[in-house]
Design a protein around this nucleic acid. Structure first.
Length: 794
DNA sequence: GCGTTCAATGTACCT
DNA sequence: ACAGGTACATTGAACGCG
């Protein structure tokens, strides 16, 4: 019978020594099904040395390793575009593929072995062109389901599944959860500290909370929670920080309580995979923290901040309870209610983020071919890499091994020094997807690179400016093929989007898909220059950047020749005085001369530059302000400084009144000194980028993290530390306190005045002759009427 | 011995 | 654990002065 299913998860099991691929899916009628394929045989490639007789080498190996080799084929493949003869070695036991490859690699007749590092289940997906989060068809027969497997039906595949045309996404059951752990002092430890609250919410709109008993025993609660998961039987489980915190804690806690944490579909427990995610067999476990980078506007990526950004704040003002106060809240009858409410709110926030992110996650998984639970934890470079692996199969290109490479930096894009001050009517012209298009135009790819010791092809080469790297003109490299395919796909998706209303499910899915395509397209250049890339060839990235410099420099010259003043530019954009006709004409000329598309990205009514690069603010015709690079956009400045700077920019750009801005700043400083500003707005957040012991100099946020550690609160690399500066003497790092451990009275307000608010404001106002001293002076005359004495203020 | 100078360190941003 | 280019605050040792 023909079975059609949408692939949710895949894993590999071995039953009676037979390797099985298990595909967990959903069929068109919404049944949860398992499709088992017992026919797939793992393999790897052994590339034979050029001077060796391939047949002979094959015979020798077959004899020598007949016990572990299922079969052996002689094949033609490519390695960085170069044709090679290889043996495709099929292995009886997938668990021993790498071992066998390792021993063959030592053979004198073998150059190297490849793809033994592609895991069995990924091998299966790639070879059969199966995409997670996509629909497939398979000839199969139904089998009696295993008692330990919770699905509606189980099938055994008679042949490999085939991708289907269907592009919809089935209705998925999603369960969100968050936990509250009780700890009297410091970070909770699973061996002693119980989980006291688990809050859940699901895609059917139900919310359920589980509580420990009065003696804080959590065993029964955990049991009920596990039952609840099984009963709802979700396809997707979402949490925030769940891979690093919740799952490991629940696992350890359950182990201690001798309770099997059976939340999956096969009665096994969540397990940490090599990719860093926690895998729940038969479901997709997703840690939404892995998608927090999708929201760069949110600087401190707490659950609350993300939810607020996504619109939670509009509905209701929540009370945030710090982890440090959980125990106290649990102990008090009234406060416990607040804690319960807070916990449920957290889960609601998780659901909200899931709504904002899951379409994208699904489409990314479908595009790059990594299972839904892997794709989130996979770093950008690995997402690109799996996409390449999936899409170079038909090329016959072997997947290179990851090798240790020396890091050699190279020159990147050009940044122009801005013309400081205010400018009226400035157009921003930029090249559409400049790097991907350069890679297409000049065939920049790992397999089309012509190294200095290679003979130049008769059909000619492209020679990159400045750096001189050569790439063959004829026969497209796989980067070019892939990028063309991606760009075409995106424009097709975007035109299809027009057929639907922006509110429809179809539109949402398509939008998520075009976003996924864009992400992979734009990351390809970065991938090319990444030393850790399997297909790392430095000249590919270096030549791309060199062509980019050539293009932007040519563009600048053409603009100037056309009589257009260039005010600023960065990598793939130029800011020019806006003269409609001339700019339109220029765009056409650039397109004709360079073969790349330029776009009039925006026109600023007015734009402000300091002398620094990468920092400016522009006013758009709809009254919106674009602030770029300045303190107001940074996460490591106190809110007081950011809001003041934003207001200053607004006044200066909209009203052109530095005087008014100055008055505003002075008023604000006065308010600040009178403590009329929220304590929260004084907190400074900085990331701990390495273990505290590895810092070479003392730093405020590191000292703050040490103080937290003293109190038992562990922070790990990547965490943000929130601190305030308190009164006292000595270096800054000697006057720091974690914000939860300090009070307003201790705060050194003058630090915030002189080192946060004034510098942020002066960054803008100094261009207009307003000095830091003037902002700090108390008796300044208003309305801009300056007295002689104003110039002598200190 | 003390204040000043400046390269190094560290973080976060832009395209 | 995608690239390079850039700004800026703070540290801490070298430096200059006397």
């Amino acid at each position: 019978m023909k079975v059609v299913f949408w692939l949710l998860d895949v894993n590999y099991e071995k039953r009676e020594e037979i390797p099985e691929i298990w595909m967990w899916g959903i069929n068109a009628s919404g049944e949860r099904i398992l499709v088992i394929d017992r026919s797939f045989v793992d393999y790897f490639y052994a590339v034979v040395k050029e001077d060796r007789e391939v047949m002979q080498v094959a015979e020798d190996i077959k004899c020598q390793h007949h016990a572990s080799i299922e079969k052996l084929e002689i094949v033609e493949r490519k390695h960085f575009g170069k044709p090679v003869k290889a043996l495709k070695v099929y292995c009886k036991n997938p668990d021993e593929t790498a071992k066998l490859a390792k021993s063959l690699r030592n053979l004198e007749s073998i150059e190297d072995c490849f793809e033994d590092d592609v895991r069995f289940s990924m091998r299966y997906l790639i070879d059969n062109n199966i995409s997670p989060c996509g629909w497939h068809e398979v000839e199969a027969f139904e089998e009696e389901p295993d008692a330990n497997v919770s699905v509606d039906k189980t099938f055994v595949a008679k042949s490999a599944p085939k991708a289907s045309e269907k592009t919809s996404v089935p209705k998925l059951r999603t369960l969100a959860f968050s936990i509250i752990r009780y700890s009297r002092e410091g970070s909770p430890k699973a061996h002693k500290d119980p989980v006291v609250i688990i809050s859940t919410a699901n895609s059917s709109g139900e919310e359920k909370q589980f509580l420990a008993d009065e003696a804080k025993n959590d065993k029964q609660m955990l049991e009920t929670f596990i039952e609840h998961v099984q009963k709802f039987n979700p396809d997707i489980i979402v949490g925030y920080g769940s891979n690093e915190r919740d799952w490991p804690y629940l696992r350890e806690r359950c182990k201690k309580l001798r309770l099997p944490l059976h939340v999956d579909r096969t009665k096994t427990e969540p397990h940490k995979s090599t990719y860093g995610h926690v895998s729940v067999t038969g479901r997709a476990n997703i840690d939404l923290a892995d998608y927090a980078d999708e929201f760069p506007e949110v600087k401190v990526k707490t659950l609350e901040n993300l939810a607020d950004y996504l619109g939670a704040a509009k509905t209701e003002k929540r009370t945030i309870i710090e982890e440090i106060d959980y125990a106290e809240h649990w102990e008090s009858t009234e406060k416990r209610e607040l804690l319960k409410k807070f916990s449920q709110e957290n889960t609601r926030s998780i659901m909200m983020i899931a709504d904002a992110v899951l379409d994208f996650a699904t489409q990314l998984s479908f595009l790059v071919g990594l299972p839904l639970d892997h794709v989130g934890t996979a770093a950008a470079g690995l997402r690109v890499e799996w996409f390449i692996i999936k899409n170079t199969r038909d090329e016959g290109e072997l997947v290179p091994r990851r090798t240790e490479q020396p890091y050699m930096p190279y020159t990147g894009g050009i940044v122009l020094s801005p013309k400081p001050g205010l400018h009226e009517k400035v157009a921003v012209l930029d090249f559409k997807s400049m790097y991907p298009n350069l890679m297409i135009t000049y065939n920049l790819s790992p397999d089309s690179y012509v190294s200095p010791n290679m003979p130049e092809p008769t059909t000619g080469v492209y020679v990159a400016p400045e750096v001189g790297h050569k790439f063959r003109r004829q026969s497209d490299g796989f980067f070019k093929k892939i990028l063309l395919q991606l760009i075409k796909a995106r424009s097709e998706i975007r035109s299809k989007m027009n057929e639907f209303s922006p509110e429809s499910a179809e539109y949402r899915v398509l939008d998520a898909r075009q976003k996924a395509v864009k992400v992979i397209t734009n990351a390809t250049y970065g991938y090319a220059g990444w030393v850790g890339a399997r297909w790392y060839i430095k000249p590919v990235a270096e030549a791309t950047a060199a062509w980019g410099r050539h293009v932007i420099q040519t563009t600048i010259k053409m603009a100037e020749t056309a009589g257009l003043k260039v005010v600023y530019g960065d990598t793939d954009s130029i800011f020019i005085a806006y003269e409609k006709k001339k700019v339109e004409q220029l765009s056409k000329e650039i397109q004709a001369k360079l073969g790349l598309e330029v776009e009039l990205d925006k026109v600023y009514e007015r734009v402000f530059f300091t002398e620094a690069k990468k920092r400016y603010a522009g006013l758009l015709s709809d009254g919106k302000l674009d602030i770029v690079g300045l303190e107001a956009m940074r996460g490591d400045w106190a809110m007081v400084a950011k809001t003041v700077q934003e207001e200053v920019l607004t006044i200066v750009l909209k009203e052109r009144s530095p005087e008014k801005a100055k008055a505003f700043v002075k008023q604000f400083i006065s308010d600040l000194r009178q403590k009329r500003i929220a304590y929260h707005d004084l907190v400074i957040w900085k990331t701990l980028t390495k273990p505290p012991s590895e810092y070479e100099v003392k730093a405020a946020h590191v000292e703050a993290s040490k103080m937290l550690k003293e109190k038992g609160w562990d922070l790990t690399v990547g965490d943000k530390v929130g601190y305030v500066i308190v009164k006292g003497s000595g270096r800054l790092y000697e006057r720091v306190k974690p914000y939860m451990l300090a009070s307003y009275d201790e705060v050194d307000i003058e630090y915030y005045v002189t080192k946060q608010v004034v510098p942020a404001a002066a960054r803008v106002l100094e261009s207009f002759g307003v000095t830091e001293e003037q902002l700090l002076s108390v008796q300044e005359k208003s309305e801009g009427k300056k007295l002689l004495t104003d110039f002598f203020e200190t």
